[in-house]
Nucleic acid binder design. Structure first.
Lengths: 213, 213
DNA sequence: GTCTATACAATGATAGAC
DNA sequence: GTCTATCATTGTATAGAC
């Protein structure tokens, strides 16, 4: 992919129309901003072009259509996501530490790129009938595959109880998703990286007061 | 609220334009159907009125605006939600059983009313700038309050470890949300009520193979 | 309460000059 | 590559007859 498509997080929230950036990059930043605030369907190409400081035909010259613009944003989100997962999976340590590490890495990446993540999140959970031709399930599948892999390692090493692999991956996904949604939703207070770790510790160690048999 | 606003789940997915129903009810069913499939922003009142078998002015006569129609749908969703939470909280048993009971009740209610829940879910997670004047946080707040109450009971009774109340509620919310999203998203296979219970058991009993100290 | 007909703004997209 | 000007369509909403 062209390096021109890189989205500078600071510029997204600060000055999308910074004249030092290329028109294509300014359009991407503006698109993330508007898609995030109004949703893809309610966003207008007019507004995006204005925010980017260019005219409408420039937008169509670079992206072909409104949907093409969304596709470019999603491609960028996928790049951020898979990079985070791959580097986190390669870590060493106990399975417990690796799972916590992957979760905190994902959580931190979401925190650093809230607008882009929110756009991708909205497409992922939104109505499939109007969704663009972008396989949004790769986010879920790759992340769950990573958790399942680490969990299987933990079971094989005797670190985790036998037969917990798939359920552990699913439970971790749920807890992480809950934390991320609280981070993405402006009405709630984020739990923070420490909170993510606390919730995962609860899952690993259990809740009951009586020792297991 | 008028009983006329009740949304028969079967009619929503089957024949929204059933002539035996009142125009207002047919409009509500059609709105849920269209909002669910295309999203609120992309849905057109033209299409909703046609599906309901009435003309546009009839829609505006009953609901005043497109947003009023969405508000009516959300109000119905809230009714379903709070009713489920209240009856589940009133149950007796151990805190662990009560938490599992509330989760499976919510899960089953979502399963029975997938279209309405998806619409409410989309508004809850969607962009706040275009959201209707409906406090979507009440879903999260009431549910988390219920979990925290039960968890506090469990801690007080010595059933759960001390200091786990809030984290337990958050972790349960996350796991439940993960299961519900897999149920609402057509690309994934639902975990089922048994899966929900398994994941919660994992949280209660812990994952580690070594006994806690 | 329900209809026909229409007002009117906004949309995504393009043609063609430069 | 970027502009001005414009098109065709669709959107929500309403006026007024019955």
């Amino acid at each position: 992919m062209n390096m021109d498509t890189f989205i500078d997080p600071a510029s997204v929230v600060a000055v999308p129309a910074d004249q030092d950036l290329q028109a294509r990059t300014r359009l991407l930043n503006a698109a993330v901003h508007i898609f995030d605030r109004k949703g893809y369907a309610s966003a207008s190409v007019r507004e995006i072009a204005e925010l980017a400081g260019v005219t409408k035909p420039v937008l169509y010259y670079y992206f072909g259509s409104k949907e093409g613009l969304l596709m470019a944003v999603l491609t960028e989100a996928q790049r951020l996501f898979t990079a985070t997962v791959e580097t986190a999976v390669a870590r060493v340590g106990t399975a417990r530490e690796r799972i916590i590490g992957l979760c905190t890495d994902i959580y931190a990446m979401f925190e650093q790129h809230v607008p882009v993540v929110r756009v991708a999140h909205a497409v992922f959970l939104g109505p499939p009938e109007v969704a663009p031709p972008f396989d949004v399930t790769i986010f879920e599948l790759s992340l769950r595959g990573a958790f399942a892999q680490i969990a299987a390692d933990g079971v094989a090493a005797g670190e985790f109880r036998a037969g917990t692999t798939d359920d552990l991956a699913m439970a971790v996904m749920g807890i992480l998703e809950g934390c991320n949604e609280r981070q993405l939703h402006p009405a709630f207070e984020p739990v923070g990286a420490a909170g993510v770790r606390r919730l995962l510790d609860l899952l690993f160690d259990g809740v009951m007061n009586t020792p297991r048999v």
